[in-house]
Every structure is written in structure tokens, then in C-alpha cells.
Design a binder for these strands. Structure first.
Lengths: 136, 136
DNA sequence: CCAATTCATACTAATTTAATATGTTATCCT
DNA sequence: AGGATAACATATTAAATTAGTATGAATTGG
């Protein structure tokens, strides 16, 4: 029940894009130098962010990344989902065959876990990148 | 950013207490049989729950555990805190010397992480054991 | 063509988490 | 009194996850 390093790094890196990639792409190297992040790790995260179409890339020298969406249209939830896939996993899907501790059909606790999950998703979705940047 | 197994197990076990320990203590063995949980693991969790004064114990044969507080006075936050200590850790305390990626003093992101932390704590504190039991 | 850069996969190391093992202490019941 | 039951305590192991590294191919600007 923690914010993962992946999420932290991704948020840090994306704020760099938000601020500096408006007119020109920004390379991972630049970002990592500024934010003191491990280059190869960020490469991996950026690939996922790109797959999720939160950022777009320009290949080759003088290439780099830019946001693919408006800054107020990228939420913390989007970032977490991209980078941390099951950042709030339904570890109990209500089926005893999948989750050994489930009792009853559907499992009596499923409703609770689902409610928590939904609350968290809504909350993280309410935090947009522009709000994060505004506070820096 | 997940509900840990520890929390899941503790919640399951505590609902057993909530329902069955009103007049007599309930042993870990009984609980684990019913909920299909690993006895020795639950012992560890219960020790922490006791240290946090959420449950009380009776030693020896015919002994077991009972809730130490009213059922509506135990929140999911209390449980998580007891069992999962830093279930929502302030991984960034704002000091570069403690968290390598912090930039600036205080770190520009500290406010955001703190806000998220506070929101989650409030939310989990709003979910009480009686509400959980009521839905089973 | 070369440097800078994205893109892709595989691997390793570190950390955390879940679970087990072993044993002690306290209390009830016959 | 003694055996059974159950809490209490600590150490260890095993599994899983996460963070980070290594290697290298593909792309593009100058």
C-alpha cells in the first residue's frame, strides 16, 4: 500500500517533460541528469508510458520524448497504470480457485476490496499532472 | 499500492473475532481452520495487533483472543498500521540525505506524497470493522 | 559515417514478504 | 500432578517482487 519507486520516478520524469518538452523533445539522458534517476530504468518506464500513449517519442539524435496528451489530461492513475500495471490489484477476485482464502461464492470480502480499489482509482484519477507541476 | 496479504489476513481474522469472541475467547487455531489461514503467520500478526491494543488475549488452554475495543472503534487504518507498519510510508521525507532523488530543500515532491498519504490514511480510517462485518 | 538517441530483451542483485520451524510459558481439566 | 491446549517469542527459509544493470539493435541528425 505504498507508492512504488516506479511511480515516483515516472512522476518525476513526466514533470520534466511537462515543463521542458513543449517545443522540443527531451531525452532520457537530460531528464535523468536533472532528476538523478537511473537511465536504463527510466528507459523501461518510458517504453510503458509510450505503449499507454501518455508520451510520444522522436527517434535518433536530437530525439527524445514529449507528452502525448494535454498536461491536464494525464492523471496519476494513468501513470500508475502504465508503469505499475496492477498498482491496485484485485488480489481477491472472489473465486476460491484463484485466491485460496476466498470463502463462499462470491467471496464475502470481494465487495470490500473492490470498493477500496474503486475509491483509490478515483482518487488517483483526480490528481492531474498540471496540478502536480503547479506545486513545484 | 496494494492491500498486503498481512492486511487481508488480519481483516479476515478480526472479523472472526468480531463475530465469535463476544462471550468467549477464540483461538488462533479455530480462526485459521475457518478462514484457511497459516497458523504461525497469524500468530505473528496477532502479536502485533495485541501490541497495538486492538485485541486482548487469554493465556493457556481454553484461552484465545477477543477484541480490545468496540467493533465500531477499530478501523482499517488501525489494522494496517498495526500489521503493516508503514503501509503508506513517506518514502520521501523531503531530505536529499535520506532519499537520493529529492531535489531542493524541502524536496519539491514532498507536499504531493504527504497529501496522498494523508488522504489514504483518512480514507482507511473511515472504514470501521463493524461496517466490514455488516457486509459479510 | 558517427554520435546520440530510442527501443528491446535478458539478466542480476537487493529487498521485501510470506511462511515455517523450534521452543518457551501459562492455564485449564482430569 | 501431568497432559493438553494455546499464547508468546525468535530465528530461519523460501518465494516473490522490485530495482537496477548489461548488452545490443534500430533510427536519425549533422
Amino acid at each position: 500500500m505504498n507508492i512504488s519507486t516506479k511511480t515516483e520516478y515516472a512522476v518525476r520524469a513526466l514533470t520534466e517533460l511537462a515543463v521542458n518538452s513543449i517545443d522540443k523533445p527531451v531525452s532520457i539522458n537530460e531528464i535523468c541528469k536533472k532528476q538523478n534517476l537511473p537511465v536504463k530504468y527510466i528507459e523501461q518506464l518510458f517504453r510503458k508510458l509510450k505503449q499507454n500513449e501518455l508520451i510520444k517519442s522522436i527517434h535518433g539524435a536530437k530525439g527524445g520524448y514529449q507528452l502525448a496528451l494535454e498536461i491536464n489530461n494525464i492523471s496519476l492513475k494513468d501513470i500508475m497504470e502504465a508503469v505499475d500495471e496492477n498498482y491496485v490489484a484485485p488480489f481477491c477476485n472472489g473465486k476460491p480457485e484463484d485466491h485460496v482464502h476466498c470463502i463462499g461464492l462470491p467471496c464475502a470480502f470481494k465487495e470490500l476490496w473492490d470498493e477500496i480499489k474503486e475509491h483509490m482509482e478515483n482518487y488517483f484519477d483526480s490528481i492531474k499532472l498540471d496540478q502536480i507541476v503547479a506545486r513545484l
